[in-house]
Deep mutational scan, measured.
Amino acid sequence: ITGDVSAANKDAIRKQMDAAASKGDVETYRKLKAKLKGIR
């Protein structure tokens, strides 16, 4: 179950990262990237 949750989280975070990148929001992008590392 835990694996599914983190996989879903990663997917959601990647989508947020894409949105931040397209807006040029480097700050948010970095925060999300750090979150991704924390999940692993």
Rank of each mutant, 00 (worst) to 15 (best):
K15M: 08
I1F: 13
G24S: 03
L36G: 01
G3E: 09
E27H: 05
A12Y: 08
A12H: 10
R14Q: 09
I13F: 01
A34S: 06
S6P: 08
I1C: 04
G38R: 12
D11E: 11
R14N: 04
K33T: 03
K35L: 15
A19P: 02
A7N: 08
A21I: 15
I13Y: 03
T28A: 10
L32P: 01
L36R: 03
G24Q: 04
K23R: 14
R40V: 15
T2V: 12
V5T: 11
A21P: 00
I1W: 14
K37W: 03
Q16G: 04
K23P: 00
I39S: 06
K31S: 03
S22E: 11
A12R: 06
D11Y: 03
R14G: 03
G3P: 10
K31R: 09
G38A: 15
I13P: 02
R14L: 13
K35M: 15
Q16H: 04
A34M: 08
D18E: 14
E27D: 08
R30Q: 12
G38P: 04
D4R: 04
K35T: 09
D4L: 09
N9R: 13
L36F: 02
D18K: 12
T2G: 12
R14H: 06
K37Q: 13
A8G: 07
L36C: 01
N9F: 15
K15T: 06
V26P: 02
R14I: 12
Y29T: 02
G3H: 10
Y29L: 09
A12G: 05
K10H: 10
S6H: 09
T28N: 04
A20W: 01
A21W: 15
D18Y: 15
S22K: 14
A21H: 07
G24I: 03
R14W: 07
K35R: 05
I1H: 11
K35V: 14
Y29K: 02
I13L: 08
A21C: 12
V26W: 15
V26Y: 15
K15Q: 07
S6L: 12
M17K: 01
K35D: 04
S6M: 13
A34T: 05
A12L: 11
S6I: 12
Y29M: 05
A8F: 12
G3T: 09
A12E: 14
K33H: 07
K23L: 07
E27F: 03
A34L: 08
Q16L: 13
K33N: 05
K31L: 05
N9C: 15
A20Q: 02
A20C: 00
A12C: 00
G3Q: 12
I39M: 11
Y29V: 06
D4Y: 06
I39G: 06
T2Q: 11
D18L: 15
R30K: 10
A21F: 14
K10D: 11
